[in-house]
């Protein structure tokens, strides 16, 4: 089963360790390689990208490595890709034109 790594107990996202397809179930593991549970992906998520472990509301912080590194700009359901289409920086945003380019190049399914 494809694995997703949660770096810190406080995190609400895990990082995919391989490319995974829509509807696929992934195994969530801790940084100490303990099994934490299984999760069904709502969309395809490529290697190195993050899946939401819990639902987020707009303005909720994205927590990775125990630290807030962004905030949701729309509801993010559990199992969805948490990335530039639904998350923004807390300090210094990527320009919109670049965000659109990233979404296009990654073929992110945007609802």
């Amino acid at each position: 089963m494809i694995k997703a790594l949660r770096l810190n107990a406080a995190d609400n996202v895990a990082t995919l360790l391989e490319d995974a397809g829509k509807g696929e179930t992934v195994l969530v593991i801790s940084e100490q390689n303990e099994t934490l549970g299984e999760l069904e992906l709502l969309q395809a998520i490529p290697f190195g990208n993050k899946v939401a472990l819990r639902p987020m509301k707009p303005e909720d912080h994205l927590i990775k490595g125990g630290v807030a590194v962004g905030k949701a700009i729309k509801p993010v359901p559990q199992g969805q890709l948490a990335h530039v289409q639904n998350i923004r920086s807390l300090n210094l945003d990527i320009p919109e034109v670049m965000i659109n380019e990233i979404i296009t190049q990654m073929e992110i399914e945007v609802d």
Binding site: L16, G48, G70, A82, V84, S89, N91, M98, I102, Q105
Partner: peptide, 23 residues
Amino acid sequence: TMSVGNSIGGLTTIEEKSLGALA
């Protein structure tokens, strides 16, 4: 300071990139 390639590789924000560097 942050490239499209960084984001395609999975980095969503400058804080996330910095946090990785800080680790």
